[in-house]
Design a protein around this nucleic acid. Structure first.
Lengths: 233, 233
DNA sequence: GATGGGTAATAAGTATGACGTTTTCGTCAC
DNA sequence: GTGACGAAAACGTCATACTTATTACCCATC
């Protein structure tokens, strides 16, 4: 484990969080703090702080005289980056990947459209740079390098939209793209059509063509949706 | 204050959270725990638990020898319901309202399209029911009753999409709609065209016409975006 | 036998004092 | 001026005692 230097409560969190989000504790399960104390061999302070964080993610609810009860999945803060990470690492990774891809397909086109009217010259430059990078690494099993440019590209688009809520989805998109690459088994090069679309998006944003940027990005995300049946069965 | 029966740490949270998200403490400001102890007249335990929660929202970072430092707004967990609530209640309410409306305009059309193929008969019934309710309350200063049906309608759409990430945005949309009504000064009745659109969306979802449901919902959200300049200057 | 109230048990909430640990900053020697 | 060493400051952890809300059980009453 790499739990050095993070504080004990973080260690407890990294154990309980994944377990709960993986469904190891069905909704309604009660966890008593003194039991957790013994299980992790830490003080009440530590357990309580971990519980507070889980509570703030709506993963559990703490009630007097009854204990810490696990809440049903519908009530979780599914936008919490840690919850997303835990679920992506756990059992229902396919389900989570689908959810995120659908979310992405809704958000990114709109973000690209906004970027076309809000992007700074620097952001436009970054965009074309990464699009070029994607072209350069799209052949010959350079999937790792390709992924770097791909995630950077989409991060810039979301950021350039000027909407803070969109910008914060950069990590989500990065996770989806990384997940896609991991499952691609490192053999097939990226779809050339997709690469071209990215170049065109960069151009549309640079020229301020919002409608075109949106439509092109929608094509990209539609492609991601199409891959989904192979990717997350 | 209505902080009865919620625990002391929640009281501290409800004081610090709004203050931080309102920008009362510029990024980099340090809060020392012993100072907070005295300020709120509670024990370290309570302060520490509140800090842990703020830390999990990425509002602050706690570092040894230096204290609890306020993080820049770009790093906040802006999807945390409490953060959203605090910001909506605070100084940059207009900004937050814009962000959320844009997010909504991206998500809801896609959600409606998915709902057209995923909605259960019960959900279709609820949809038409609330659309009818909107029609019935759209005239004669019944804005409160109208709002109830409006929020319920959009909640069902998001829920019927079958995407958990969309479903969790129900509260966000409700907040936006409520905010809109509050600023409408209770004099002008809802736009009849918008009401008609809702009825048509309900019908499109019921008949499984995804494209139509999406397009109609996009018109609704475009209307919301248009209102924005008056609403959140 | 069902109902209602009171009481005791239980588990979380709070307070406090002591100690550990890391990080920073200042000082001192070189 | 540079380096290393050490002390101080703040959070981190632990142990313990005490408080409080909630539940469940028991007993009396109807």
């Amino acid at each position: 484990m790499e739990n050095e230097g993070k504080g004990l409560h973080a260690r407890v969190l990294e154990s309980l969080g994944p377990a709960i989000t993986a469904g190891d504790y069905p909704p309604g399960t009660v966890l008593r703090t003194d039991e957790l104390e013994r299980r992790f061999d830490v003080s009440r302070t530590v357990i309580r702080e971990a519980i507070r964080v889980l509570e703030s993610m709506q993963l559990v609810a703490s009630r007097r005289r009854v204990g810490v009860t696990v809440r049903p999945a519908e009530e979780w803060n599914v936008y919490d980056p840690r919850v997303i990470g835990w679920r992506l690492a756990g059992r229902d990774r396919p389900r989570q990947l689908r959810s995120l891809t659908v979310l992405r397909s809704a958000v990114e086109p709109v973000a690209a459209g906004l970027a076309a009217t809000h992007a700074t010259p620097e952001q436009c430059a970054e965009l074309t740079e990464h699009a070029m990078g994607m072209v350069a690494t799209s052949r010959g099993q350079q999937l790792d390098a390709y992924l770097v440019h791909d995630t950077a590209f989409h991060r810039v688009v979301l950021s350039a939209s000027g909407n803070e809520m969109f910008a914060r989805l950069g990590d989500v998109v990065a996770a989806v793209l990384t997940g896609r690459t991991q499952h691609h088994v490192m053999f097939t090069d990226p779809d050339p059509a997709a690469v071209t679309l990215h170049v065109q998006v960069a151009e549309a944003v640079r020229t301020g063509d919002a409608e075109r940027a949106e439509a092109l990005t929608r094509e990209i995300t539609l492609g991601a949706m199409a891959e989904l049946d192979v990717l997350a069965p």
